[in-house]
Design a protein around this nucleic acid. Structure first.
Lengths: 340, 340
DNA sequence: GTTCAGTAGAAAATCGATTTTATTGCAAGT
DNA sequence: ACTTGCAATAAAATCGATTTTCTACTGAAC
């Protein structure tokens, strides 16, 4: 048994061919100055020895790693998992690979990961978890590190950005409910730090104002994307004198939490109250759930972000671009005309 | 605006201090041969310049990358997402990072990713998607690359392995149903290439044989982990002369598919037929579903695999180890005594 | 005063590739 | 015969770190 053997280097190939390493390099890179005969010999020896160039050494020399890093809040959340899958697919097509970091919404962890990725000289970064006011973002731009913000804008630093048309998504949900005849439509917000959550709220307000002139601030409840807060919001709506006949939630988890609580209390969805979510989580499509929801095409979000990033790498700096993907309302079984 | 500036190198720090690069390196590594005063000066300059060592250069020199690669079938599948999260957590604690590759169960893609990771000189690999008969696995061992098999054994190559006690999981499900009084218990298999799926079938057979002496082969239906095949299996069971009073599915998706189909056909779960799943997917716990399922502790699976891998890296080779984590039956609302 | 040991730091080698520059051999041109 | 030009390959520099080896200097011992 021939113990763990060192991987062959370009020197080994050169030695086996009786050539210099530089010639082997040129041969493998299909440079013109190498004879066809020599090239063939090199190729043969290289495959015989199982030679594969070290990305480490090549990266050091070329200042490229063919690797990008992605900061997401939590890969075990299906929304991010889907995004990551989209990123991966786009990278795979160009022989790039992906380092993934779950930050748990913790700015300290986020900064630590960022430095780790920078130390590893990633060719670019996709930021899907960064707080909207992080100091790190302007620093990245200043250093000239390519990066794309995904579904989260930065407060002050203009940046390449890929996101869903969040506002249009909630607006479509409100429009759908209004056309069913609803007049009192409640809203459960996402976390305030998230720019996407802000846009979802904006879409709600815009459409409510457009159709009914005024917004009832009592119908807008805070939330944090968790099902528990969704349930709490449902309680809150139920306790109101003139309770809403429909609820728009800023994401599916909260909608699901609200739906469960509503049913616990003996209300029927959508007979007694209509409900919409956002994200079109797999759960929304389940036959037992059938939640009307806004689909943000998360996988596309990821692949578009990766494509944009790749186009920036190795290219001269240009003005930041924005890619906004449509968010479609998927009609299912949780909306109906109001009772009265 | 001071355009995109080159990252400072150890030479820059050395120059700023009026020292040699080697001295700076020694100072930052807390070597004894450097004066406290010099060390302080180096530290000050390093932080002032924002110097961080290139992992690329260091990796080339030290033959370490502080990065591991994971091959999973599909990161957008919650089961793998959960595993990956576990891996990440364990790596993060030791300043390692993770390159993630979704192979889509495609052996060609799998081999391509593997070579990519090897070219990048990963310190180790976690294989959660590899076919049980892949030639690559023995090659890895021969080359001395540390790797851990996760939830999939290799046919012939003894390897470090981390997995759930799949057999005990399905056995527990069967035992639970038998104690409720069920005598005819059907089984929907996973894909045949998966060793984990094989173990789940084994657990079913073992417990059936132990309690009822003989196995009715008609009650064991093929499957592939998809909800469609679960639904098809339900149809198949329903069409039988003496249909089973309970069904054990090798995973949740198939159980869910079967459950939906059963209800479509007007059957009630668990009154008319009992049902159990495997994986304890988030969906199983939903208030509208409440599927009794076996929980494999996926996140632990990931973190244990990462821990085992890390213990192998840089250590002398030893005989392969196996880590088997318990799989617990989570009782919910889809099992009840049989009608007759 | 000379040797010796020890110390702090500098210089050089190294990791494995790529790229630039140098060298060799050969044929053509004058 | 002697340069000139070209083609094929070799040698050397480079990327940015670490590690080994070397050097200069200090102070103590004989």
């Amino acid at each position: 048994m021939p113990g763990p053997s060192r991987r062959p280097t370009i020197k080994d190939v050169a030695h086996a061919c009786g050539l210099a390493p530089s010639t082997v390099s040129n041969a493998l890179a299909d440079k013109a100055s190498v004879t066809a005969e020599t090239r063939a010999r090199v190729l043969a020896e290289a495959t015989r020895l199982g030679y594969r160039a070290s990305s480490l050494a090549r990266g050091l020399r070329l200042h490229r790693t063919w690797t990008v890093g992605a900061l997401v809040a939590d890969i075990s959340n299906p929304f991010f998992a889907e995004i990551v899958r989209g990123i991966e697919d786009a990278l795979w097509a160009q022989d790039y690979s992906l380092v993934i970091c779950s930050t748990d919404y913790d700015p300290r962890k986020e900064a630590a990961f960022l430095h780790l990725l920078l130390d590893k000289r990633m060719d670019g970064l996709i930021l899907a978890s960064t707080a909207s006011d992080s100091d790190e973002v302007p620093r990245l731009r200043q250093r000239g590190v390519p990066y794309v913000l995904l579904n989260r804008r930065h407060r002050s630093q203009p940046s390449d950005y890929v996101g869903s048309d969040n506002a249009a998504g909630t607006a479509a949900a409100v429009a759908h409910l209004a056309e069913l005849g609803h007049r009192r439509i409640g809203f459960i917000c996402g976390p305030t730090q998230s720019s996407a959550a802000g846009e979802r709220l904006d879409g709600y307000r815009r459409e409510i104002r457009r159709r009914f002139r005024r917004i009832d601030p009592a119908l807008v409840l805070p939330g944090d994307y968790s099902s528990e807060r969704g349930a709490a919001a449902a309680d809150c709506f139920l306790a109101m004198d003139r309770r809403p006949t429909a609820i728009v939630a800023a994401n599916d988890f909260m909608a699901l939490g609200a739906m469960a609580r509503l049913q616990e209390r003996g209300l029927s969805v959508p007979r007694d109250i209509s409900l919409t979510g956002f994200d079109d989580n797999v759960i929304a499509g389940l036959p037992w759930v059938r939640l009307t929801s806004v689909r943000p095409h998360s996988r596309d979000l990821g692949s578009r972000a990766a494509a944009l990033l790749l186009s920036r790498i190795g290219a001269p700096p240009v003005a930041p671009a924005e890619v906004i993907l449509p968010a479609d309302l998927i009609l299912r079984a949780t909306t109906a005309p109001p009772l009265d």
